Amino acid sequence: MNYGYVPTAEEAALSPVCGNIVNQQLSANMYHYLASKIVLTDKFVLEIGSGRGGGARYIAEHFKPLNYIGLDIAGSAVELANRLHPLPNVKFIQGSGEHISLYDGTVDVVVNVESSHGYGDVALFIREVYRVLKPGGYLLLVDFRNSVDNMELFKQQLLASGLHCICLENISAQVVEAIETEDPVKRKQIEAWIPRRFQKIFSEFAGVVGSKFYNTLKSGERPYYRFVLTKPVV
């Protein structure tokens, strides 16, 4: 789902995770502590970059939005997500975050988890988010950039969009802790499921301890941030 998140003691006390997640607890944490920033009950939520849909299911089951649409560019991921998560208020559709097939001002909340760094035109994505959000709607976003300068550029793009920033947090340390916590299990899974000749490449992709992703995240070269922004009410 994502690289995972270990909450601070204060966060855990204020908003404990809903139930026990058998698999990918720390990845579910990422969604939980992002969704906890605002009230989602009875809202129309759009997740851009919904992948296999596990995060969408968690939010839909525990935060009770009215409707939840998961948008992903990969048709295979959309097909799998609809098969794995047949919930009455959740639907997965294929599409691009740079060309969202929804009307202006129709979405209460946009969720974007570890996805925006891969977009070809991030500024266009942000404009599309602004377009589909209702006045007073929210963008909840967590993601990393491969350098401090690129994260500063991303912050500037968000703030220049017209969205107002409510929350801007560097959560790199919490993501590093999640990677370290999950490392033994993740390595066993890679050894069990991935052919030996591909294990080194996959370990880098998975961000295990010692990988380039992990090392640059821990050193601060690759910052990871959490954002909550809102579209002004005119």
Rank of each mutant, 00 (worst) to 15 (best):
E11I: 00
F202D: 14
F154L: 11
V78G: 06
A206E: 14
I100E: 13
V78E: 01
G75I: 07
E169G: 08
A35E: 02
S115T: 14
A9N: 05
F198P: 06
I194F: 11
F198H: 09
N112T: 09
F44C: 12
R226L: 12
F144P: 06
N20T: 08
Y3K: 11
I93S: 10
E152F: 02
L80K: 09
V6F: 04
Y138W: 06
F154Q: 10
L40T: 07
F144Y: 11
V209D: 10
D42W: 00
I59Q: 03
S211Y: 00
C165Q: 10
V233T: 11
Q156P: 03
Y33Q: 07
I73N: 09
Q174R: 10
A13P: 03
Y224C: 11
Y103N: 13
I190D: 07
E114P: 04
I179L: 15
R145G: 13
P195F: 08
T41D: 14
Q156R: 03
Q199L: 13
I166Y: 05
I48V: 15
G53M: 03
R145Q: 14
V148C: 06
E169C: 08
E182S: 11
V209H: 05
L229D: 14
A77F: 12
L71K: 03
N2G: 06
G137R: 04
G118F: 08
F198R: 02
G55L: 00
L80R: 09
Y119F: 12
F63N: 07
D149S: 14
Y68N: 02
I194Q: 08
K43D: 13
I48T: 13
L66A: 15
P65D: 13
K91N: 12
V109Q: 09
E169P: 03
N112Q: 09
D149A: 15
A28P: 01
Q189T: 07
G4L: 01
T8S: 13
K212T: 12
V111A: 14
G207E: 03
A60R: 01
V132P: 04
Q156M: 04
V234W: 02
L71Q: 08
S76K: 05
G70A: 08
V17N: 05
I100P: 02
P184G: 12
S172M: 05
S172E: 12
D149T: 10
E10I: 05
H99S: 14
H164P: 03
N215M: 12
A60F: 03
L140Y: 11
L34H: 07
Y3R: 10
K64S: 14
I166M: 09
L84D: 14
D143R: 04
T8F: 00
